[in-house]
Nucleic acid binder design. Structure first.
Lengths: 214, 214
DNA sequence: GTCTATAGCTGGATAGAC
DNA sequence: GTCTATCCAGCTATAGAC
């Protein structure tokens, strides 16, 4: 009995490692050919198997994208949730912003899959998506340590950092034209949002413009 | 002679309008099917012709994307360069930010083609790209009227506004969760960057953190 | 310029032997 | 589980009659 259980475990482990090896090959492939360049033939060739064998591990091509998404989301959550060495909450916040930026610029393709949703029919499954929520929670925690708790300020934060990364990836790939602005951007953000340090001026501002919104 | 010239003009005009009609159909199609959903058959059907006839007007599929890009860039530049009614330079800046946001959320597909470069082998031709530079110039002009001239601050501006739009399109399509933050974001930006109103505090800040950049 | 017909290719996915 | 062989659908692009 024990033997049979062990055998099952072996097989399960083998299967898992083969599964993972295919996803490894998939990431390797798309990092060269782009997200849309993933084909089952090329993937199988790179993984050292044939195309039909891929179907022994994944039901469809989208299932492969989903597994890729799942691994990326896991890596993302792990990276964001790493404990920070810094006492100063502001420095810790800069650190988390730099981590995010680094994570995205490390692999623009991964950034595209995780955050830009550019694959036609693909929507990540809840299981694959779950780790991303963990990462958001870690960010909110750091913001809270800086006295930022209002929902609109959290949204301003994500927009600010996403914008830096987006410009960096789109217009200066491999460089640091935008990422080097992170420190100053965090300053700007905290000065504006922190209730204690900078008394809000928004309330006392006289008139609001009528922009063409929606 | 005159007659022949006129005839040539007619033909040229007819050709141009047929050309434009195809691009119209192309935009109509991708707005429903997504950028990657553009096929010559569907496009031809929607334009009331057959697939081979498309080749009488465009050399290849990428040439169609390029013409689509060109028109979008033209529309973009026109919109950004519209004169502002507002005297107050801050209000004018908010207006231009709202215009940009509106332009992008009006058609996420157009946003994707213009700013996200997600088509595999496609790179816009210089002629198609040119109008985008005109739009950037218009933005820089408005920034200058607010006393913003440093290159890094211009980059911070583009990141700020791009981030808002990117989050809006990606995470709340059709809503205004992020676009409604534009007014406050511009406040934050100007308070930080305007040399006259807010004396810089960056120079007097004691220590800088060591984020993991690049 | 517009059509019909089709070439030529590549893709995802399946059948069935081993 | 892995293979060979193949199906079938979709695509871009071309040939050639009208």
């Amino acid at each position: 009995m024990i033997n049979s259980v062990e055998t099952t475990d072996w097989r399960e482990a083998r299967r898992r490692s083969a599964h993972d090896a295919i996803i490894d090959a998939a990431w390797s492939l798309v990092s060269e050919e782009g997200l849309a360049g993933l084909t089952l033939r090329d993937l199988a060739y790179r993984a050292g198997i044939t195309a039909p064998t891929v179907y022994a591990y994944f039901d469809s091509k989208n299932a492969i994208y989903d597994a890729m998404f799942g691994r990326a989301a896991m890596d993302f959550a792990d990276r964001m949730a790493e404990p920070s060495d810094y006492e100063d909450p502001r420095v810790a916040l800069v650190t988390i912003a730099c981590r995010f930026s680094q994570f995205c610029t490390d692999s623009p393709t991964r950034y595209q899959l995780l955050f830009q949703r550019t694959i036609p029919g693909f929507v990540p499954s809840p299981e694959s998506y779950a780790p991303a929520l963990r990462a958001l929670a870690a960010t909110q925690e750091q913001l809270a340590l800086n006295g930022i708790t209002e929902a609109r300020h959290v949204d301003m934060w994500t927009a600010l950092i996403t914008g830096v990364v987006d410009q960096q990836v789109s217009n200066d790939p491999g460089g640091d034209r935008w990422t080097r602005l992170i420190d100053e951007s965090v300053d700007m953000f905290l000065t504006h949002c922190q209730p204690t340090h900078a008394p809000r001026k928004a309330a006392s501002r006289p008139t609001r413009p009528k922009g063409k919104k929606t």
